[in-house]
Design a protein around this nucleic acid. Structure first.
Lengths: 230, 230
DNA sequence: CTATATTTGTGTAAATCTTACGCATTTAGA
DNA sequence: TCTAAATGCGTAAGATTTACACAAATATAG
């Protein structure tokens, strides 16, 4: 019998990206270990002198070359003692959002191979990563309705129809286009630019941008972002 | 230089109780260590073969003799590398609710001393426990508005005025008594009993009880509990 | 160059929900 | 028996949400 604690602590990142009316997650392919060849969430062990947040950022940089725009702790997975067959590992999962349009992921390094996966084409992942991802999707859905995180998945300037499609796609719901627009505009946290977006056909649409400063101010005054659907 | 991870993993519990129109937190007094004589949240190191949840329950039982009615993971504190001056310790904090009226806490053991503290009379706590508590209070406030957790703080049978006071006290807001009652009753998740509660003066009031089964059924059908205030 | 398909931008009436109140009822105690 | 205290119920005004229709601006097919 030993009293010495022998538990590793790791971090994992669930990075969501949105493009072409599709929600994606960033996965990496394990190149070694018992879970070899399985795809997995980016992550790894925390260093002794490193904060949890720094650990996630470092792993993301190392494994995928991605820097995220939104970032928060999701949940700590440590109830299944054998979630990692090698050792007892407790993992602090982080939830992150990024606009994938402007970044290049590490696609062909020696060690790891990072890739965007469509949310409804996720394979069997290593460890309990399918569970972790499930929880992250729930969080994303919930968060979309009560915080303006959708903008972190879009380019700085975006079309109203893109925002609308993002909500429809991720929440898997029908939304009345007109009521949605009215609601969002009533918050006065997004602004019209003088640019027009490029669409294939139909009337050209103005580009909008999210005014985060304004949002923060309003929040301080008691404003609460909320999108509900029938 | 060493590559060996040397980080401990602990759990802490923030146990809320409500009595006499007051919100309380359960604290224990440290009997050893650098933080001796400081009050602290109950908690301790996770054992190698123990789930996080079991660790919290065990520590609570050992240190305070309390078994909680509601229980969920709050947050993992691991960004401040020196939050524990002895070692690097990452702590998974759990948020718990209990009706204190029916239980006896461990008040005078050799090792630890557990005690309810009024939420606005909290002393300087050990480690970063004041921060943890702050986050727990925020969670409690938020949760009260979108999940029926208030009932876990009350006896099985309660007066409407007790429920109302609980909301007023914890959320630190004025509520219109009549609108509050109407709202809660409209959910059809609490039931009138044929018992009457004992009040000092005024018209006697019926006791009510929360029908958790009904709530779960309704939730499956898409019902969403929500209490908002002006 | 005209007609058609496609997407954007705006408005309004009905229904629902929230808010702000008033008053009668039932008890304990002066 | 009168008063204070608390409960229980109701309703009108205001605000918000929902459902739905049509004109405007462009690309493309003919």
């Amino acid at each position: 019998m030993t009293n010495i604690q022998n538990i590793r602590i790791a971090v994992d990142a669930i990075v969501f990206g949105y493009q072409n009316n599709q929600l994606y997650v960033l996965l990496i392919q394990q190149k070694f270990g018992t879970q070899e060849s399985y795809w997995a969430l980016p992550g790894g062990l925390v260093k002794n002198d490193e904060s949890l947040q720094d650990a996630v950022k470092r792993e993301l940089k190392e494994e995928t070359n991605v820097t995220v725009t939104y970032f928060e702790q999701l949940f700590t997975f440590g109830d299944d003692i054998n979630r990692d067959p090698r050792n007892r590992v407790i993992s602090v999962a982080y939830f992150a959002l990024v606009d994938p349009s402007k970044l290049t992921i590490k696609a062909d390094s020696d060690a790891d191979h990072a890739q965007w996966y469509k949310i409804n084409e996720i394979p069997d992942l290593a460890f309990d990563h399918n569970d972790i991802l499930k929880k992250a999707i729930e969080r994303l859905k919930a968060k979309l309705t009560y915080e303006p995180v959708g903008f972190d998945l879009l380019p700085k300037e975006f079309l109203f129809s893109e925002l609308e499609n993002l909500y429809c796609t991720i929440l898997e719901k029908e939304i009345d286009r007109r009521n949605f627009r009215k609601k969002i505009l009533s918050f006065e946290i997004i602004e019209e630019t003088d640019q027009f977006g490029s669409s294939k056909s139909g009337r050209p649409a103005k580009l909008f941008k999210f005014n985060k400063l304004k949002y923060n101010e309003l929040t301080k005054k008691g404003f609460h972002f909320e999108i509900k659907f029938a």
